[in-house]
Simulated assay, not measured.
Amino acid sequence: MRKLSVLLVFGILLSACKKNDDKTISDISKTKSDTIQTKSVTSTETGHSESLLEQFSKNKNEVVLKLKTLSNKEANALYEKYSEENSSLLQQIAEKESAVLDKFYHEDETDKKAVKLLGEKLSKHQLEFWEIGEGYVEIEPLHDFYYTIFKDYVTSDYKEYLHLKSEENKTLYSADAGLVISFKDLGDRIISWENFMTKYPDSKLIVSVKEEYKNYQMDYLVGQDNTPTAERATDEKYIYPENIQEFNRFMKKYPKSPTVPLINLFMENFKSESIFDLLRAEQDKL
């Protein structure tokens, strides 16, 4: 009887130990699993910018392949969709890299190194820094990025549009409330877009092109805050001699340009407080 009791107690103790051992193994497994999961999340957060850059290049490669199966009008539509999606993606990349972008102009060696490393990383994905003035820096594709991808697949108006944009994107247009390019170069841009609109009056791009064209005209005539075409803040108001010279060059070289009447209107009325309204009203007739 005593022997039987001892065996029963031994069995109970053995069962209890086994349960405790199972529980311990289970706890260890759970802890290990949680640790792996935590590492995974941390790794994802750390490399999120890299993931976005990889996605940018992956999207580009997919578009290149897809273009080979599309008609030219379908390629036009793909360009519109792709460029819009890229704008959103680039904004996300800039947000993830804001800590570096904010230090773009810092002289600290650590900051300069971080900026250099980011620049090298962007270059691998056909991206670059774009200094837009007032201490701000954006991330943009190379100037001919879209033209190179789409030129052999889109309709002729889209091809010419992308070529013109790729040429313009070689240099910054304006920064710190002033023009970066010369007024002569701006005048030539205006002519390029006038030629485009004459050549492709029915293009789906006309609305956006005309809007930018009008902005170019206004900047050419009036200038921007830090690069005005006339002195209007003093009692003696006058158009700067270099701008008069440029206006005369333009009118002589392009006498049939729709911008010529606007130049004459500005030169006759630049002292008026309502000069902007006068010019916009004339633009609406174009």
Rank of each mutant, 00 (worst) to 15 (best):
R2Q: 09
V9Y: 07
G11I: 06
L14A: 15
S15Y: 07
K18D: 09
K18I: 14
N20M: 13
D21F: 05
D22I: 07
K23L: 13
T24W: 00
I28D: 11
K32T: 04
I36T: 08
T38L: 15
T38N: 06
T44Q: 14
H48F: 15
E50I: 09
L53M: 12
E54R: 15
Q55E: 13
S57A: 12
K58H: 08
K60I: 05
K60E: 15
E62D: 12
E74F: 09
E80W: 02
S83C: 05
S88W: 07
Q91R: 09
E95Q: 10
V100F: 04
Y105W: 07
H106V: 06
T110C: 05
K113Q: 10
V115N: 06
L117T: 13
L117C: 03
L122C: 04
K124D: 05
H125S: 08
H125W: 11
E131T: 06
D144V: 12
D144H: 10
Y153L: 12
D157I: 06
Y158D: 01
Y158T: 06
S166F: 10
E167P: 02
D176L: 02
G178I: 05
S182D: 08
S182E: 08
S182W: 12
D185N: 07
I190S: 01
I191C: 03
S192I: 06
F196L: 03
D202E: 13
D202S: 11
K204P: 00
K204M: 10
V209R: 05
N215W: 05
Y216Q: 06
Y216E: 01
Q217M: 12
M218R: 10
D219H: 13
T227P: 00
P228V: 03
K237G: 04
K237A: 01
P241R: 04
E246D: 05
F247Y: 11
R249K: 12
K252C: 01
Y254D: 01
S257H: 04
T259L: 15
L262A: 01
N264S: 05
S272C: 12
S274N: 12
D277H: 05
Q283P: 01
L286C: 00
